[in-house]
């Protein structure tokens, strides 16, 4: 009964795969929680920073401040920062980022791309691999960022990006990443990073007291702007990375959940098939015995 044995082995192997995917799902769920906590942790900082920025602009008017990061230059060279993950098995998570970058290169930035004026920086191994496989030239990869992710390491990368903008190496920088909505939903977005747009929404009547403007500025407004803007850029970058990490775990959790479900379905179908084969084998054996006995009786 080689066939029955083969099927038994198959069932065992599917079951052990299911165990692996189930474990991976659990691990992702735990990591997702941690990643979500990190997002919540930076929220007070980010909100306060934004509030200070709004206060500064409100009191002094957005028009008359100058900052090297807010300068709109003639766009000659563009950098796309594609934030992906270091590990796979997370559904369409990485492929979506790569697809979006490809789409941008062929539509919005096609003119620049044809002249070789678009660089792609891949953060995360998986993205870099796919870009290579698709023959999309990348100017660099950064993948050590995710090992024990900290603000200080993300800050360094953000500072490098800001420096390359300042020196005029790039005149426009976009971030492409998965924004975290909830465990099951990620939203792929393209976010302009540099130059800075300072959005000042008119404070609604309810929080008018939040934004009253009678501050003493030390040393002076421009100096404060000069420290607050780089900070808010770094926070923006750090938040993008954190969002991407949380999305990655969310995507992996969903993918592994589906894989576990599929495995159960497969085990069910295989078991049915196995039992049918087993029963027909038994029926066959019984027939043999009975007909053997009959033959003996007849003689």
């Amino acid at each position: 009964m080689a066939n029955l044995k083969e099927m038994r082995l198959r069932i065992v192997s599917v079951k052990s795969t299911q165990q692996v995917t189930r474990a991976m799902k659990m691990v992702s769920a735990a990591k997702l929680r941690k990643a979500q906590d990190a997002i919540i942790q930076i929220r007070p900082y980010a909100e306060k920073l934004h509030e200070i920025l709004v206060n500064l602009v409100n009191q002094n008017g957005a028009a008359d401040f100058e900052n090297k990061y807010a300068e709109h230059k003639e766009v000659k060279k563009i950098l796309l920062v594609a934030i992906t993950s270091n590990r796979g098995l997370c559904g369409g998570f990485n492929a979506n980022v790569v697809k979006k970058v490809e789409e941008l290169l062929l539509t919005k930035y096609s003119h620049y791309f044809q002249n070789g004026m678009v660089d792609v920086l891949a953060i995360g191994k998986k993205g870099a691999d796919v870009f290579k496989a698709k023959n999309i030239p990348i100017s660099g990869t950064i993948h050590q960022l995710y090992e024990g992710l900290q603000y200080s390491s993300a800050e360094k990368v953000a500072q490098d990006l800001m420096n390359s903008f300042e020196t005029g190496e790039y005149d426009h920088i976009d971030l492409v990443y998965n924004q975290f909505k909830n465990a099951a939903v990620q939203k792929l977005i393209v976010e302009p990073f540099l130059p800075v747009e300072i959005k000042v929404e008119k404070p609604s009547h309810d929080d008018a007291h939040h934004y009253f403007s009678d501050y003493i500025f030390e040393p002076d407004v421009n100096e404060i702007m000069g420290t607050v803007i780089p900070k808010s850029l770094k926070i923006q970058f750090f938040k993008a990375i954190l969002d991407s990490v949380a999305s990655e775990h969310g995507a992996r959790m969903t993918a592994m959940h589906k894989a576990t479900d599929n495995a159960s379905e497969l085990v069910r179908a295989l078991n049915l098939q196995y039992n049918k084969a087993r029963q027909s084998a038994i029926t066959g054996e019984l027939l043999e015995i009975v007909s053997g006995a009959n033959a003996l009786k007849g003689s």
Partner: peptide, 19 residues
Amino acid sequence: PGTNGSFEVLMNHAPAIST
């Protein structure tokens, strides 16, 4: 440790933003 020198904040300090 303000950029323009160290300073102290006590009760009822005027609103201020400083680096």
